[in-house]
């Protein structure tokens, strides 16, 4: 990407810039509208004139944090998702490393099977999973969410990590082996540090997908384990939808992901494009 600056007709550059700006605007307008609405009062949001300019109010955020159970939802999400991310990365590395390093017919078959799990739509899995978790009495516990999120993210994580581990130059590992390091140490001391960006990318993507989940959480959550996304629906009631509050709560749901993505944009992009582009 470094030396791609070439002089081009200026008019075309301007057109590209305008188009790019326009596209960006289209993609951010709805989210900007959400954030803005979160700072409005009901009257400002529903009045007949479109209110782009208004006096911001923190009432909705007060409502979300002090009057509703939403913050317990955030906590549940944070717990379930972070435990599952750790579990995902550990378990997936265990599979991905041998898969990347010591390929065999059996390994490839395993890889195909794991990738095929990614194709199964969650709605298909949720009923049997619900029946299973019900049998082992885990519904309503945070562990049901941890297990399901780990299961959900494993195929993608294995796929990504396998690619990242493959990028570690073979020679370094061989040198370590000659130095007498065993397989476990090679992985922990050499391969893992060298593929750290990939691991971060994988963890980040697993985090995003689990955090954004609604279907599983909606069906599996119990009294004390309602996640943030499920908590959001609490503001839609049969007797009134607190739109401004929902927009504030929605903003709170998406901010962690946006912030994480912003700081780790490079990793995120790598993770998302991994496997498709090399």
């Amino acid at each position: 990407m470094s030396q791609k600056f070439h002089r081009k007709p200026r008019a075309l550059d301007h057109l590209r810039f305008v188009l790019g700006l326009l596209v960006t605007l289209i993609f951010i307008f709805p989210v900007a509208w959400m954030i803005a609405t979160g700072f409005k009062t009901g009257n400002q949001a529903f009045s007949n004139s479109t209110s782009f300019f208004f006096k911001p109010s923190l009432d909705n955020y007060r409502e979300v944090f002090f009057k509703s159970d939403f913050k317990s939802g955030i906590m549940t999400s944070l717990q379930a998702v972070s435990i599952s991310v750790v579990l995902t990365v550990c378990l997936a590395s265990g599979i991905a490393y041998p898969m990347a390093r010591f390929p065999s017919k059996g390994m490839n078959r395993l890889a195909s099977w794991i990738i095929s799990l990614r194709i199964v739509p969650p709605i298909v899995t949720i009923i049997p999973l619900f029946l299973l978790l019900r049998t082992v009495k885990l519904t309503g516990s945070i562990w049901s969410l941890v297990l399901v999120y780990t299961f959900m993210n494993m195929p993608l994580a294995i796929w990504l990590l396998r690619g990242f581990f493959k990028e570690v130059p073979r020679e370094i590992e061989e040198a370590a082996e000659i130095d007498g390091l065993d397989g476990k140490r090679i992985f922990l001391k050499i391969v893992l540090p060298l593929s750290a960006p990939g691991v971060v990318a994988t963890a980040l993507l697993s985090f995003v997908f689990a955090w954004n989940d609604f279907l599983f959480a909606n069906i599996l959550s119990g009294a004390t384990t309602r996640t943030a996304t499920v908590g959001l629906t609490e503001f839609v009631t049969p007797v009134g939808t607190a739109w401004t509050t929902i927009m504030a709560a929605g903003t709170i749901v998406v901010i962690p992901v946006w912030v994480a993505a912003l700081f780790a944009q490079k990793y995120l992009v790598r993770g998302l494009t991994m496997g498709s582009v090399k």
Binding site: M75, Q79, I83, V85, A196, F263
Partner: peptide, 19 residues
């Protein structure tokens, strides 16, 4: 990448403590 990994560790530690 220490910062990224470190941040992740802190988040997890916090979440576990809260739970």
């Amino acid at each position: 990448h220490r910062r990224g990994l470190g941040g992740l560790a802190v988040v997890i530690a916090l979440a576990t403590a809260i739970s």
